[in-house]
């Protein structure tokens, strides 16, 4: 089988990812409370890291994979910052 066949199958999967990102962004914008928005951005970024790895294969430029690692690490930092802020407010600091 030709490798371009598998690439075509992945090309059909890309619009599904785009729809998922749109829905995550809608929840991140709408989110009634702050943890909702942060959770939506968090999940969206982890999925985005996966999508970036797939795109770096499709673009045939391997250097692009480094962005996925950095994004997954720093979004976790955003999570911890917001959690720390909410908890410190409860302690009455």
């Amino acid at each position: 089988m030709d490798p371009s066949l598998f690439v075509n199958v992945i090309l059909y999967a890309i619009p599904i990812y785009l729809t998922a990102f749109t829905l995550y962004a809608v929840r991140a914008v709408k989110g009634p409370t702050i943890p909702d928005s942060v959770l939506a951005i968090d999940s969206m970024s982890y999925d985005l890291a996966a999508f970036m790895a797939i795109l770096s294969i499709l673009f045939k430029s391997p250097i692009l994979i480094a962005v996925a690692i950095v994004l997954a690490l720093w979004i976790f930092a955003l999570d911890i910052y917001v959690a720390k802020y909410l908890e410190s407010r409860e302690m009455g600091e």
């Binding site: 943890p35 982890y46 997954a72 720390k84 909410l86 908890e87 407010r89 409860e90």
Partner: peptide, 23 residues
Amino acid sequence: LILLLGPVGSHALARASYKSRAA
């Protein structure tokens, strides 16, 4: 990295939002 960091972040956020009654 995601396998380690994703659950830790979600748990930290859930604990904080329970204790601070944000949600």
